[in-house]
Every structure is written in C-alpha cells, then in structure tokens.
C-alpha cells in the first residue's frame, strides 16, 4: 500500500468508495506494482479479496506483500483471501492430465472457444461466500466477517495470449462487474498491458489488447494508466501515471485527469508532479 497514492486517490483503508471498477493499464512500462498496492490496500481494509493470479505465482505476490507489510499466507488461512494460482494449475490442464478436479474454472485452457464461463462461476462462488449470511436474510448486503468483496485480476491480457477472444474477456469482466460491484457493492481491479505505441494508422485490424483496453475504459470508473517517459529511459524516474476519474464525483468535474511521475522503491513507490523528481531538482 502506497500512502502517496492513497492521498492522490483520496482514499484510505478505513474509508473507500464502493462499486468501483478500477482499470490499471500500462504501455512501455510495468504497472504491476499498482496491483500489489491494491492487493495490500484491500486486505488492510478488511475486504474479502478474490485474486486471479494469472501472470505470477503465489510466492511472488506473497514475497512482495511481505515487504508491504501484509501476509498473504495468513490472509489465506483466515479465509480473507481466495487466491486462484492459474499459473500452477494450468499445467495439468495444458498437458491433459485427466484429473477431473472439481474446478471447472480453467475450462478455457482446454478449448478457448468455450469462453470464460467457468472462471466467472468460480469468481461468483468465491465472492458470494463472504456474504452468505447476509444473502440468506435477503438483505443484499454483505454483513459477513469481512467487508465488501473485491476482485483483483493480474492480468487480463494473459487470457488473450492463451487464445481467449477479446469478446469473451470483455463479457467476463462485465459479468464480474455486475456481480461484484453492482450486486455485492464491492470493487474490482483489473490490469491490462498494452504493447508499443498507440497506433492511429492501422485501425483496420485492431490488436487484441488495444480493443480490450478500449472496452474496459468504457466500463470503468477510475483508470490508472502507466506509461514510460515520453522522453526516454531514466534511472530515477520510472515512468508516468495518468489518473482519470470517469464518473462524476461531487464538487469535481467529469473526466478529471491528473498526471504524475513515479519511482518504485524497494518497499513502496513515490509519486510526484512532473519535473519535480529529486533527481532533477
């Protein structure tokens, strides 16, 4: 959890907005540090977190979270964190070990045309677990042990690499949005990674990740877009992040944008206005 980013987003673990779809995207830079931020943020906030770890192994997230002061293993034991380690479980499916496990979540690996129905069912089952008591009374709230459910996905573009179509991924994220954000009043954070330059010329055949980014930008309420510096590589400034609030907030105009430069440290990240890096001043 980066305190400086919380100040920028005007949020804190005790008090955060619900029903938000946060889109983290990157281009010529790596935005995965923001995923670690949101993971530790929502765990501290006491939310029930469902994490789809597509890109890295559990030990990686665990090691980083340890540095950020959150223990994933403990959260997992307490039942606060539900971690689907796709990277590990995909192997058996890919090599067609006929171990018919109870999990149908990775059906898309057998045949990408099937779509992400199984994965969505997994998400729905895991997030509605937390509110089992609340749903039983028909209250619609999540008055469980944990706070509102949160779904984190790192990262959606991996699904495209595995042959899933952009349409299916967008369907999946929309279904998740409806379930997690609208019905259960929770939050959702997804990461999308794009390639190279924004291409204006070849709009005939649009690349998968670009289309995914556009589709998700349309859905989301807050975007954090991480880019490399336009002026080139620098050791002391790792890139810039553009924060854009898309939904109207009180006393704030629509589509407000802010641009910051950032530097990732060993145990956090610092954000500063453009040109005010300590290395420059």
């Amino acid at each position: 959890m980066f305190a400086e980013l919380n100040a920028i987003l005007n949020t804190s673990p005790d008090h955060f907005k619900q029903e938000e779809l946060i889109l983290v995207s990157d281009r010529r830079a790596d935005a995965s540090f923001l995923v670690h931020h949101f993971l530790s943020f929502y765990l501290r906030a006491g939310c029930k977190v469902c994490f789809l770890g597509l890109a890295q192994s559990f030990s990686h997230y665990s090691a980083v979270s340890q540095r950020l002061g959150v223990s994933l293993t403990q959260a997992k034991e307490k039942g606060q964190l539900l971690f689907l380690e796709v990277l590990k479980e995909s192997l058996d499916v890919l090599l067609q070990k006929t171990s018919n496990t109870e999990s149908q979540a990775l059906d898309f690996l057998r045949d990408p045309a099937v779509g992400l129905r199984g994965l969505y069912d997994f998400v729905r089952a895991s997030v509605s677990d937390s509110g089992a008591g609340g749903e039983g009374d028909g209250g619609g709230g999540t008055v469980g042990r944990w706070g509102p459910p949160v779904l984190l996905v790192d990262d959606l573009t991996v699904l495209l690499s595995l042959g899933v179509s952009v349409g299916s991924v967008l369907d999946f994220s929309h279904y998740c949005f409806v379930t997690v954000c609208s019905q259960l009043k929770g939050n959702m954070v997804t990461l999308v990674r794009c390639e190279g330059e924004e291409d204006e010329d070849e709009d005939g055949d649009e690349e998968g990740s670009e289309r995914l980014l556009k589709g998700l930008t349309h859905q989301c309420s807050l975007t954090l877009h991480v880019q490399g510096l336009p002026t080139g590589f620098c050791r002391d400034i790792h890139g810039q992040v553009e924060v854009c609030w898309r939904k109207t907030q009180k006393d704030k105009p629509l589509n407000q944008r802010k641009l910051f430069q950032y530097k990732v440290h060993d145990k956090g990240a610092s954000f500063f206005a453009r040109g005010t890096s300590s290395a420059v001043l």
Binding site: S57, L87, K88, S90, L91, S161, G163
Partner: peptide
Amino acid sequence: TTFLYGLRGLLR
C-alpha cells in the same frame, strides 16, 4: 504463447 505460459508455470 500458451507454451511459454506453461513453461513459466513449470519453471516457477
């Protein structure tokens, strides 16, 4: 890409 994904899972 699917192979590389599997390889990554295997190596990790």
